[in-house]
Design a protein around this nucleic acid. Structure first.
Lengths: 142, 142
DNA sequence: CTCAGCTGTAACCGCTGTGGTTACATTGTT
DNA sequence: AACAATGTAACCACAGCGGTTACAGCTGAG
């Protein structure tokens, strides 16, 4: 199973916000146009980003803005904001092995440590990249 | 989205095979009893493990056996065998951003490197753990 | 040789998460 | 007050997962 594209779309949106001139209004419809999806999908995502404190959204013609500096926002922040998986549960482990079997009795605890280590390793890579770096990379390619 | 429990079930099965005495027959029904699922689910998984060369399954009353030594089998081998995700695509990236937008035009290539690095970091943790270690851990807990 | 007992597989089910879409109430600026 | 945007609920189609039934195919024991 793949990790939802909400993550990549969120990074896309934040990149738009980071590069957008102050005076221009970035509506959900415009963002949807860049991502190539439906405005409602964008607004749902913005709701999550707002709840996580990454953006400020003012209804009506208020506009949408980044709340922090791009250099302070890591991709892990974004990843967590859009709740691709609840913390510590990237892997699902079968829930009720047979406790009468020596293997069944301990397999969960034996695997838990390993998979959370694997998950952490993945997240640390995301934590090492900031929105600033992504934006710089985008501009370098232009 | 979580990674399928096929992975944890596969490790469970292989641990059973690694600890099972030579002379006792380990049928899909017995394994299903330990995992607490349906025998068909086990047989489907065994099919994948067989295709990956991790086990040998002989039909009828032939039994099922590990093909390699537990010390040679890493959890990454198991992970790949059960195809939780096709290689290099743990993250899904939205597929058709607007090429007319500077961000849309380059977001995919900008993210590709990062997410595949994240995925690799995760997989390397799995690559660092062998079936042997899992079995030893299970036995230590008994 | 037969047959019991196992594997291999196809087919179907219900559940869940995702992303798209329509519809409409709410908000705040002009 | 009007308009243009956000916030949300509701519904849809689709895909993957895990469970289940059913049955064909194989093979070793008797």
């Amino acid at each position: 199973m793949q990790i939802s594209s909400r993550f990549s779309v969120a990074v896309h949106i934040l990149s738009l916000l980071a590069t957008q001139p102050e005076d221009e209004l970035l509506t959900s419809e415009r963002m949807a146009g860049s991502v190539n999806t439906n405005p409602v999908v964008i607004r749902r995502l913005l709701g999550q980003l707002k709840k996580a404190g990454l953006v400020e959204v003012r209804p009506a013609a208020g506009g949408t803005f980044l709340r922090g500096r791009p250099v302070d926002v890591t991709l892990l922040d974004v990843y967590r904001a859009v709740e691709v998986v609840e913390a510590g549960h990237l892997f699902s482990i079968h829930s009720s092995p047979n406790p009468k079997c020596p293997v069944g009795r301990h397999i969960q605890s034996a695997l838990n440590g390993i998979v959370s280590e694997a998950q952490t390793a993945m997240e640390q890579v995301l934590a090492g990249v900031t929105l600033q770096q992504v934006v710089a990379d985008l501009q370098a390619k232009t």
